[in-house]
């Protein structure tokens, strides 16, 4: 079954939880390039994907969130972009059980397009092309463009996907609440985002990260009010991070996450998972709740 057929089957796709916080838990130091671990710590990367598949994820994301040229440039790893993305995909694929999926993660550049910044549309698009090519070659089932905040930038990523592969893609932005509804940091409304992604033929449209499952429920309702028919993707983080005895903790336990999931499921998402601070236990609980509903 292809990823598109799986989504069309109307059965909820269970995604994975966080990659970044799992890497930190396994020794990644802040300031290290996470994508470099795709070739330097392959067993750990495979282990993270395997732990999500074991917990019940139907699809896991590759460790390639920052694998664009513009992101890797900051670490002087631009020349290894193809390799880091290729192996990022291969690590996850190597532990993928039959019938499950691996989705190539593509995150924003962290830089601004003209006229607000100095990156041209061409540079921005090219920065994503290498990710798309490498992961298509490696054999991913689709892409997830995640935590974008600029509609023009996500369009560059979509161009890169469409011109270099035939694979489907999920589009996800990160929103916060404002007096005029939810907006991204760049001022994109849910309506603008949904309309643009429908015309771009995104397989799933939604949001990840943000500030916990309760706020994600409010946001999901706004997505639903904009469109009753879109295939919605929701990946909440485990609440706001705080310090506890010098260690960074997230406020939402797997239990808390699961106890609010029914409200999230009432909005009829097509795919759910977790973002920062969520781990395989969150996913196991999500699966339990979905199976009992």
């Amino acid at each position: 079954m292809t990823l598109t057929e799986r989504i069309e089957s109307r059965k909820i796709l269970i995604l994975d939880g966080a990659t970044g916080s799992e890497l930190i838990a396994r020794g990644l130091i802040a300031g290290e390039c996470p994508e470099l671990w795709n070739i330097s710590h392959t067993e750990i990367i495979k282990d993270i994907s395997a732990s999500y598949f074991a917990a019940g994820s139907d699809a896991v994301l590759t460790n390639t969130f920052g694998g664009s040229l513009l992101k890797l440039r900051a670490y002087n790893l631009e020349s290894q972009a193809y390799e880091l993305n290729f192996w990022g995909a291969r690590n996850a694929i190597s532990v993928k059980p039959e019938g499950k999926f691996v989705i190539g993660s593509i995150g924003p550049s962290g830089l601004m397009l003209e006229p607000f910044g100095d990156i041209t549309y061409q540079e921005m698009t090219d920065s994503f092309v290498v990710q798309v090519k490498a992961m298509t070659d490696a054999g991913v089932d689709g892409f997830m463009l995640e935590t974008f905040t600029d509609l023009e930038e996500i369009k560059c990523a979509i161009c890169a996907v469409k011109e270099n592969s035939d694979l489907p893609f999920f589009a996800s932005m990160t929103f916060s609440n404002t007096p005029d509804g939810h907006k991204t940091m760049m001022g994109v409304s849910v309506t603008d985002f949904v309309e643009a992604m429908q015309s771009a033929n995104a397989l799933l449209v939604g949001s990840n990260c943000g500030n916990g499952i309760l706020k994600m429920i409010d946001l999901a309702k706004e997505f639903r009010s904009v469109s009753a028919t879109i295939n919605l993707l929701l990946k909440a983080n485990a609440g706001e991070p705080h310090l506890h005895d010098g260690v960074l903790c997230y406020s939402e336990s797997p239990e808390m996450f699961a106890s609010n999931l029914t409200d999230l499921l009432a909005i009829s998402p097509s795919a759910v998972g977790g973002c920062c601070g969520t781990n395989p236990e969150h996913i196991r609980r999500i699966k339990q709740v979905i199976e009992t509903v």
Partner: peptide, 12 residues
């Protein structure tokens, strides 16, 4: 601060 302007407007 009031959520009525966003990063692009601020930057420019």
């Amino acid at each position: 601060s009031d959520g009525k302007a966003f990063v692009p407007e601020m930057l420019i």
